[in-house]
C-alpha cells in the first residue's frame, strides 16, 4: 500500500491546494504539537516549531514568486 492510500493521508492529498508540501505540513502539524505536549518547551522543540512556521511562510512566498 502506498503512503497516499492511507485513510487520512488520502483525504488530505485529495483536498486543499493540491500541493504535497502543504499536505505534508498539514500531516506533520499534529505530530509536532503532540511532541511538544509530551516533551515540553525546550531548545529543540522551539527550534522545530520556529522552523515549521518560517517554512510555511517562506513556502507561500516561494509559490507566489515561482508562479
Amino acid at each position: 500500500m502506498k503512503l497516499s492510500e492511507l485513510p487520512i493521508v488520502e483525504e488530505v492529498f485529495e483536498s486543499g491546494a493540491n500541493d504535497r508540501v502543504f499536505d505534508s505540513l498539514l500531516l506533520i502539524g499534529p505530530v509536532l504539537i503532540a511532541g511538544i505536549a509530551i516533551v515540553g518547551r525546550s531548545t529543540v522543540t522551539t527550534g522545530i516549531a520556529i522552523a515549521y512556521v518560517l517554512f510555511f511562510v517562506a513556502y507561500v512566498g516561494y509559490r507566489g514568486i515561482s508562479n
Partner: peptide, 14 residues
C-alpha cells in the same frame, strides 16, 4: 477544512 486545519496548526505553533 483543509485550509482551516493547516492554518490552525500554524497558529498554534506561532
Amino acid at each position: 477544512w483543509w485550509i482551516f486545519i493547516l492554518f490552525t496548526f500554524v497558529s498554534i505553533l506561532l
